[in-house]
């Protein structure tokens, strides 16, 4: 894990070289960190969170692709002034929901959040997500009858992933 160590401050180190290293590793660092955490927390779907492709994330998480459904309500602002905090709520009238995932298509890591719903939990979740730029947001519901999704676009005027 010396790649991550290079992100630590080193007194006297040449700052330009350090920045160069940090830039190159900024993309890889979180992926390694997520992979390393998997051993400690077996339930955490680290591979899905590290995926840089929507299909790869959903396949890692569910092993299948969702079908679009009009029984899902995805509530998110049409225009988000601040991409760092975008409130997103998803709910459905589908029965037998066991999991809900939120995917932000234009983020470096596509999967934003994943919720497991034991019996008795209503199929509605609200959370706040970061969005790097204007993007499609997708909510995926895993039900007894298969995988279903709904998407909508959120226009972002100030990105939420730095830069």
């Amino acid at each position: 894990m010396d790649m991550i160590e290079t992100l630590e401050p080193k007194p006297g180190a040449d700052r330009r070289a350090m920045m160069k290293g940090a830039l190159a590793l900024g993309v890889l660092g979180p992926a390694f960190a997520a992979t390393a955490a998997r051993a400690a927390e077996p339930a955490y779907p680290a591979a899905a969170f590290a995926a840089k492709d929507v299909d790869a994330a959903l396949t890692a998480l569910f092993g299948a692709k969702p079908a679009a459904s009009d029984k899902i309500t995805l509530d998110a602002p049409e225009i988000a002034e601040n991409g760092a905090v975008v409130p997103v709520t998803a709910s459905t009238t589908l029965d037998g929901v066991t999991a809900i995932a939120f995917v932000v298509a234009e983020n470096p890591f596509k999967l934003a959040s994943y919720y497991e719903l034991p019996a008795g939990v209503l199929p509605t979740v609200s959370n706040r997500l970061k969005m790097q730029r204007t993007t499609q947001v997708m909510a995926v519901f895993k039900t007894a009858g298969g995988l279903f999704s709904a998407s909508r676009e959120v226009k972002v005027t100030i990105g939420g992933c730095g830069g």
């Binding site: 760092a84 959040s113 994943y114 919720y115 497991e116 719903l117 706040r128 970061k130």
Partner: peptide, 25 residues
């Protein structure tokens, strides 16, 4: 001791995260 709800988050969840869910029973 029984799990009511489990959230798995990646780095795209906003700073000072907020979450809302509902359950019966």
């Amino acid at each position: 001791g029984k799990t009511l709800f489990a959230a798995n988050w990646g780095p795209a969840v906003s700073k000072d995260p907020y979450l809302k869910f509902q359950y019966k029973g």
